[in-house]
């Protein structure tokens, strides 16, 4: 009895000791560490939505991958499990002397404000928020402009006269999506009803599906979402309802998730922004300013797959409005207050 127990304890201790030995031996040598320092390194920290959201975080990652291919950058992603992790996650990349570390999402504003000043020699970037630090580039988008064009498509294509919008959290970024979309719908046909719902989160496809199904049952036939990973559920809802029910995706092109039920996607070119700013770090032209990406900068707009389900005449209309916006003749409201005084333009 005692011998058996002793054996197992001895084996367990050996396993643990071996693990520690192996772990310590695995530490990189000074030479390896030096080599690692020489490469140009770009990293990002995702929101709790994480990679695989087919949306926002994935778009940012495409930007990094492009930096890897075109700039030879060494890239890395750290996914956040909890909000408490934002700071240590950002720090873990900065500690490895990443030339630029991206904070993906406005929820990381506070964390970046705390971390960036501690690494004055390194650069940081943040998407969807503005952090005023001498080593941080802030990137925001005119989501209302791209959403406006999707509103035009939705109002032109609806058969039931009712369309839906599913937002993640009711925060300024998502408000821009909602308001631009509603303005677009009103421009085409003020009688089209827009149902608006919020999931209250960004990481729960089941919740997105629930809200979308509710809107479909209230008569909507097209539902546009701006809700991160919740949107996977919105698209699933359209797919489940079948022919004649449509979802509109966001951030990345989400057409492949349900080719017959995704009408269009509002591309938010986080990838373009991430790549642009990262390349500026590489060639030494980085500026700690606030970059705004709109239609004119090709930062937002409907995806290429839109032409699959949307007829040319509608696309022509979309292009006409787009030109007006790019030319500065048409300003799209970005808040609900601005929407109240918005008068739909005539072509």
């Amino acid at each position: 009895m005692s011998r058996r127990t002793t054996w197992i304890v001895v084996v367990a201790v050996i396993v643990v000791l071996a693990a520690v030995y192996v772990a310590v031996r695995g530490l990189p040598t000074a030479k390896q560490a030096e080599e690692a320092q020489q490469a140009f390194k770009a990293g990002m920290v995702t929101d709790i939505g994480g990679l695989g959201d087919q949306s926002f975080n994935d778009a940012a990652y495409r930007g990094l991958e492009r930096a890897k291919n075109e700039l030879g950058a060494e890239i890395n992603v750290v996914e956040s499990k909890k909000m408490d992790d934002y700071e240590p996650n950002l720090r873990s990349l900065a500690d490895q002397e990443y030339d630029i570390t991206w904070a993906i999402g406005f929820l990381m504003t506070d964390a970046l404000n705390n971390v960036a000043p501690q690494y004055p020699e390194l650069k940081f970037g943040i998407i969807d928020s503005v952090v005023e630090q001498p080593n941080v580039a802030s990137v925001t988008f005119k989501e209302q402009e791209g959403s406006y064009l999707l509103g035009i498509i939705a109002a032109s294509m609806t058969k039931t006269g009712t369309v839906g919008f599913v937002g993640g959290m009711d925060v300024p970024v998502i408000e821009r999506f909602e308001v631009g979309y509603v303005a677009g719908v009103r421009t085409v046909n003020p009688d089209v009803k827009v149902l608006i719902g919020y999931t209250g989160k960004f990481d729960d496809p089941a919740k997105g599906k629930e809200v979308a199904l509710a809107q479909f049952s209230q008569g909507a036939d097209i539902v546009y979402h701006a809700s991160g990973a919740c949107g996977i559920g919105v698209i699933e809802a359209a797919k489940e309802k079948g022919q004649g029910f449509w979802a509109m995706g966001v951030d990345s092109c989400q057409h492949h998730l349900a080719p017959d039920n995704v009408m269009s996607c509002m591309m938010k070119r986080v990838d373009v922004a991430v790549y642009d700013v990262t390349s500026k770090v590489k060639d030494g032209t980085f500026e700690a300013t606030h970059y705004v990406y709109g239609l004119a900068e090709d930062g937002v707009g409907p995806c290429d797959e839109t032409s699959k389900h949307v007829p040319q005449e509608v696309l022509d209309k979309v292009n006409a409005y787009k030109e007006k916006i790019v030319a500065g003749e048409l300003v799209i409201p970005a808040t609900r207050v601005e929407l109240e005084t918005f008068t739909p333009p005539a072509l």
């Binding site: 693990a19 520690v20 192996v22 772990a23 310590v24 031996r25 695995g26 530490l27």
Partner: peptide, 9 residues
């Protein structure tokens, strides 16, 4: 090895 050494570190 790399995984657990990163964990320990």
């Amino acid at each position: 090895v790399a995984a657990y050494s990163a964990l320990v570190r």
